[in-house]
Amino acid sequence: MRRMFWLIAVLLSSVCYAQTPRLPQSASGEEILKKVDLNMFSENKIIESRMVIHGERGSRTVETKSWQRSTRETFSEFLAPARDKGTKMLKLQDMLWTYSPSTDRIILISGHMLRQSVMGSDLSYEDMMEDPHLPNLYSAKVSSEETVVGRSCWVLDLTAKKEDIAYNSRKAWIDKTRYVLLKENLYAKSGKLLKTMEVREVTEIQNHWIAKSILYKDVLKEGGGTEFFVDSVILDATIPEYLFSKAALKK
């Protein structure tokens, strides 16, 4: 549980679910989560992605290139649209800085700013900052089995282990054979549904199953949600050390 959005983690991390031994039909929620977790992450990766944000007044496309080291350090640069081109973000552990070329300022994103939307999408900075390793944040229980987008899935009920967490509970649909999160609902402490995620396309890269097309929807927000497309992924890539420093933001 913890994985705020697999989202950027699943997305950006663009998850890999590899050819690992299958779990028995009676596997526990914790075992399934660990399996997903184990197969989802690789050490270093470079990802090029697009977010198509369907707002009330039309759609916008935001293109990004990200360099990710482990799951806690990410350097991202926005490539489009023109207004946002050159904007960079650096996430180091629990800190997040952004750099905008128009102001030539590096700003620490903290406090309530973390609740802001990332580029107007259905994802927030808080989502990006959450530990993507769900077993660290949630306890899991298999509640049922369902078929989602033609794949047989376990349905997991995830309950937060900590108080100070954005989503108190989640319902996750996990592909039984690929260990890919195919669908997820995120809930507030009150039980109110806050966000949904649906994987629309999964592809296999270097023995990892990667969610290639995902639809995120902030239920409290008008509009048609945010489609996330992974255009390219290089796993176990060599990434220069300097990228994970604030100095790299202004370069």
Binding site: S117, G120, S121
Partner: peptide, 16 residues
């Protein structure tokens, strides 16, 4: 000074 706000499309924006 720098203003940090949201664009009408919801992106965080910075303006000197």
């Amino acid at each position: 000074v720098t203003l940090i706000s949201s664009t009408m499309y919801g992106s965080m924006t910075y303006y000197n």
